[in-house]
Design a protein around this nucleic acid. Sequence first.
DNA 1: TATTGTTATACTCTATAACTATA
DNA 2: TATAGTTATAGAGTATAACAATA
Lengths: 143, 143
Amino acid sequence: MTPRADPLTVEVVGLIGTVVARYYEEYEQAATEHSLTGAQARVLSLLSVEPLPMRKIAQRLKCEPSNITGIVDRLESRGLVERRPDPADRRVKLAAPTEEGASLAQALRTSLDFAREPLGRLTAAERTLLKELLQKMLGVAPE
Amino acid sequence: MTPRADPLTVEVVGLIGTVVARYYEEYEQAATEHSLTGAQARVLSLLSVEPLPMRKIAQRLKCEPSNITGIVDRLESRGLVERRPDPADRRVKLAAPTEEGASLAQALRTSLDFAREPLGRLTAAERTLLKELLQKMLGVAPE
DNA sequence: TATTGTTATACTCTATAACTATA
DNA sequence: TATAGTTATAGAGTATAACAATA
């Protein structure tokens, strides 16, 4: 019983597509301004929250673990990330941002103005309403 | 005067990020199910609306025109797209979907259930509200 | 035996620059 | 001379398969 071709749903889907396209463009642009590819920026942002095993990074990015080797290699060669041994399991390598990597991740977050600039057009009440609608749409428990 | 670190805005930005990630995953998955890459699916979808000169495709995808040559080559070698001369300008080649390409584009649209399935969780009134909020956020004229 | 990370390979996407054929 | 499309090239992301080290 999902809504199909009704004009309202089609229009909302189109709007969401526009949001997605704009978000992606701005993300890529922000990454490029910091001399990172999109994939590198995503990995660095992920690691700036907490160091992760290579395997976990692949799971978060939904790609094969073998790809992560190259991405982390490039970040490491720029001194933004380092590989640490995991004391609990010698097979595991934990990727962690260096100080420079952490501050670059911070700068990246700051320049990600998307949704902050457009959200400026909404009042606080409207933002709250949007939050609730997106939560319901995504099936996220409000609290 | 854009809202910065207030918790509400941060939360909405996070939700939009989730929507974007989910949309992209589902788009890539739908493309893969039809043995297309994401880029090929985007080009084919674009052409299914109307045939376009190579140059225009690049503008729409925001990439260099030289990339389009290869993408259209691959679609053409699978019989999904053809290059037609433009009667008005012999430099121009119009890329257009074949019958098979058009029906594949249609199938792709149908399997893009994102936003249709999640939107099913919203009532018609809520979808209208979401539409209006997104329009205001994107600076789109309501009509 | 199973798992972690890596290597090797092949394909696609990407930007840049140089080329061709038209305009 | 300018523009449309292409080719050539190099770098990056991707999946697959096979490998070494460790569990």
